[in-house]
Design a protein around this nucleic acid. Sequence first.
DNA 1: AACATAGGCCAACACGAGTTGGCCAACAAG
DNA 2: CTTGTTGGCCAACTCGTGTTGGCCTATGTT
Lengths: 197, 197
Amino acid sequence: MFVGMTGTTENQQAARRSDATRATILAAARERFAADGYEKVTIRAIARDAKIDPSMVMRYYGNKAGLFAAAVAIDPGLPGLPVEPREEIGRTLVRHFLTLWEENEELTALMRVGATDPAAAERMQSVLREQLIPLARRLGPEPDQAPARAALCASTVLGLALTRYVLRFPASMALGREEIVDWLGPTVQRYLTAPTP
Amino acid sequence: MFVGMTGTTENQQAARRSDATRATILAAARERFAADGYEKVTIRAIARDAKIDPSMVMRYYGNKAGLFAAAVAIDPGLPGLPVEPREEIGRTLVRHFLTLWEENEELTALMRVGATDPAAAERMQSVLREQLIPLARRLGPEPDQAPARAALCASTVLGLALTRYVLRFPASMALGREEIVDWLGPTVQRYLTAPTP
DNA sequence: AACATAGGCCAACACGAGTTGGCCAACAAG
DNA sequence: CTTGTTGGCCAACTCGTGTTGGCCTATGTT
């Protein structure tokens, strides 16, 4: 069984003929969720965007929650960041987050939904817990202050993301990329490395 | 006509016998909207909290949108802030926002809803436009930089509100009030008064 | 050629939501 | 006491949604 493969001996998952449709659905879902959150998005609308029948979404992703989970699966990959030079970590972090946000619209979706859905909020928190706090622990003076310092950094970059990508304040969207790095970089740098005020 | 008043010659609105119910509905609505946003909140649930019939909500507030509008009517009152001493404006602003947020749960509601509703987002933006930018213009070196500086301040305090009151990150909730002022105060101060980096 | 299977669509169900209109009881004015 | 008005409740309607099961048609295997 499972002979219908693509020629080479696959050890992963068999390439299904419907993979194109699956991807189309996922792309449409990401776009909709990023634009409108969770509740306001209808499976029918996503299906219409993907030019398939709503029941296909159910077949491939189980239910609406499953589709959302598949649409926002992403890893910010903070551990892979270069931590040197140490006095540049603030600017490096801000730049990394900006790139992340501009390339992955699912982050906007996650944020929109996290505002009202505890599960999505927990997913965001897990990034703080498993990636940002450890990073702060490696950098900060007193290790027991790592959660506080990491929380301040999270609030900084999420605040920018909120006003720029979610609420879409013109004054925030007007800021240039390097302008943001110049302003927020020192802030994050201070939160991570400065002595307690 | 209009004789059924409360004795004194009222020039405002006659005190209706149903004012107590109106207030109860509004309180329940604020609580629900602050907890769950807009879509997930049902008029039926609010009515249950207020121990009245759902149709009463309609009678008094027209429809769900009208109820929400009445529930989040609030003014941050930034123009009344003491702007002196000038080197304390950052800390003053942060303290003011903290108080505001802890006393008015409708701000949390507005933020939850703003994440997915353009109208609510516009309401938040109007605060930036009509109160924060003018304040930045009065303080900042170059007036044409006021929108950028104000946007950075908004992103700072909204970022904290997001992680602390909306997403409810434990690391952010653990921060003490004066601790926050000590960390964010200098940040806001710099955004408002420091020379362009 | 016959058949099995997977991809896709259609029509319908079930249910919860916002909203509506009419009925009843208390209160106040005449 | 009668009568109009106000506050409140009940039952129903309508609509959109997530979700389901059955049917059709390619595709590819034997």
